[in-house]
Design a protein around this nucleic acid. Sequence first.
DNA 1: CGCGTAATTGAAAAGTATCAACACTGGTGG
DNA 2: CCACCAGTGTTGATACTTTTCAATTACGCG
Lengths: 186, 186
Amino acid sequence: MIRINRELLQYITELQDSGITCETYGPGEEIIGQKKRVLSVRIVKSGIVKCYLTEDNGNDFIQEFFGEGEIFGEIEVLNGNPSFCALETITDTEVCKIPGDRFGELLQTDKKFNELILKALASKVHYTAIRHSYHQSHAIEDNLLRLKKQFPRLIDVIAKRDIANYLGVTLRSLNRTINGMRNKGI
Amino acid sequence: MIRINRELLQYITELQDSGITCETYGPGEEIIGQKKRVLSVRIVKSGIVKCYLTEDNGNDFIQEFFGEGEIFGEIEVLNGNPSFCALETITDTEVCKIPGDRFGELLQTDKKFNELILKALASKVHYTAIRHSYHQSHAIEDNLLRLKKQFPRLIDVIAKRDIANYLGVTLRSLNRTINGMRNKGI
DNA sequence: CGCGTAATTGAAAAGTATCAACACTGGTGG
DNA sequence: CCACCAGTGTTGATACTTTTCAATTACGCG
C-alpha cells in the first residue's frame, strides 16, 4: 500500500553529495506530470506521494503510494522515456532530488548505491506483480481487508476516491463493500 | 504481451563465460515452481515461457509471456526471496542459466551487464505498470484489441485458457467477447 | 476407437458501474 | 453570525457486465 525503503533513505541521507538537493511540497502538489521528460530522480524523505496514471478514457489508476525512502523517476531516467505516471503529493512532503546525470554517475561509481537501486527495482517488480495478481483474482472485500492489514490508518489518510482508484473500482462499489463489511461486523 | 529483449540476448550470447550453461525444455515443462528457492538467473534464448502465479483461491494469473532475451529469476536472486511466480514453457525452449553467485559477480565487474540488467528491470516495471493500468480501466474487448495489435498470432500460439488468465477474466467471458467482436466484424 | 484436454455455449446468479440526488464539512465573505 | 460554496462522502435504483455452473462439442493422440 504505502511503500517504504528505509535502507535507501538512510543511505541517501548519509551520502554527502553536493549534487543532491532537497525540495518541499504542500499537499496536493504535482511533482511530475504524465508524459513529461524526466530529468531527475527523486527519493521521498518524508510524506506520502501518489503515483498514478490517467487513461485515455479519463480513468485514474493509482500505481502506488510512496512513503519514506521510495524512489521515483529512476525508470524514466534509466531508459530515457517520458514519465508514464504522474506524481502528486498527498501530505506535506520532502524529497531528495538527484539530477539524472549524477544518478548515472553514482550507479557507476558507488557499488552500494548501485546495489540499493537494483534491489529497489527488484522490489517494485515483486510488489506490483503480487498486488495486481491479488486484485485480479479477489473480490473487493478481500482487497480491502488486505489493505487494512497492511495499513490500518488507511481511511484516515487516503481519500476514498484514491482508495477506489487504487483498487480499480468505482467509489460507489467501494462504499457498498464497506457497508457490507460493517454489517458483517468487520 | 510476449516480451523480448534483443540487446540482452545478444550480449549474453557473445559473452564467453564458463559459468553460464544452456538448458532445453519441451512444451509444458516447469522451469521454476512457485515459492521455491531460486539459485539461478535464466535468460530465454528461444521459445516462449509463461510466468504465472497461482492464488490461494486457485486462480492463475499470468504475469507475462517471456520471449527471446527476457530474464527471470533475477528478482529472487537479488533480494533473496523465494519465487513468487512459477515459470512454465509453452513451446520448445532454450534458456541460458547463470548461477546466482556468478550473476552477482557479473553485476559488480561488468559495467555493460550491470546496465543491461538495470534497464531490463526498469522495463519490467514500466511495462507491467502500463499493462495493469490499462486492464483495470478498459473493457475486455479493448484489451483483446490491444493484444492483437501487439501480437497478431495470439490465438494460434497461446491457449484460450492462458489468454483469459492473462487478462484476469474467465474463459466464458473471453469467449463471449470474441463472439461479440466477430459479429461486429472485427 | 476411446480417452483426456481444450473449446464452446446457454441460463441464472452475482457483482459492478452508472446516474442522480442528498448530506456533511470547513472555509469565505457579506 | 449566517448564508453560501466547493470538495468529499453517502445512498438508492437501474442497467450492464462478468462469473458460475453445467452440459456439449471438437480435437489430437496412443
